[in-house]
Amino acid sequence: MALRVLVGVKRVIDYAVKIRVKPDNMGVVTEGVKHSMNPFDEIAVEEAMRLKEKKIVKEIIAVSCGPKQNQETIRTALAMGADRGIHVEIGGKEYENLGPLHVSKIFAKLAEKEDINLIILGKQAIDGDNNQTGQMTAALLDWPQATFASEVTVEDNSLKVVREIDGGLETIHVKLPAVVTADLRLNEPRYATLPSIMQKAKKKKIDKMTPSDLGVDVTPTVETVRVEDPPVREAGQKVETVEDMVAKLKEAGVV
């Protein structure tokens, strides 16, 4: 088998950065803040790489939708081993309002254009926490979806996927072409070193296009009304002994 794989790589605020809400309450501060590849997308790229190393996959295309800086995210995927990149350039207000449905439409169009057999995405991005893009891309293509994957085995023209569900695991089989979304335990992503990003990845090609090149309308239907800080939880007391702890919990009526 020689699958052609599309992986989605989103540029998000780094997971270790403390989020600050903008003073106008219309979003969070992104300027001057460290960004990285969405951690679940790293797992998706890694899974594609492992299939390529097993000779099941022929080509991996890393796609990112967003402003110029998203090229860095694509370069990281190329440094990890993806073969080429596609940057769907969307900036300014349009990017602020870009939602999972728009991205799904872009991915679906690219899948058709590039003759893709397998799409691997992270199960969710750690900024919007939507957990929608994989499911919607599969729906638009009329492909099956294997969400929250923790183990993927390629079989004869289908995939056997172990999924993380509430209370345990589930095994399903999906016909190819299919969409897989990566959960935490699928693999341990490799680390792309800086020289690798600079040298190897620089030579690989990144195609640029816009949503309208693909015939995708990115008019938003969901509007942000406001963004606020979560309510602050006041720290309580520290106690000295287990006895004191039990006494406090009894006082609160919870033991």
Binding site: I13, K18, I19, V21, V28, I126, D127, G128, D129, V222, E223, T224, V225, R226, V227, E228, D229, P230
Partner: peptide
């Protein structure tokens, strides 16, 4: 959003 570090009304 952002792992509960902000609350969005949409």
């Amino acid at each position: 959003i952002y792992a509960g570090n902000a609350i969005a009304t949409v």
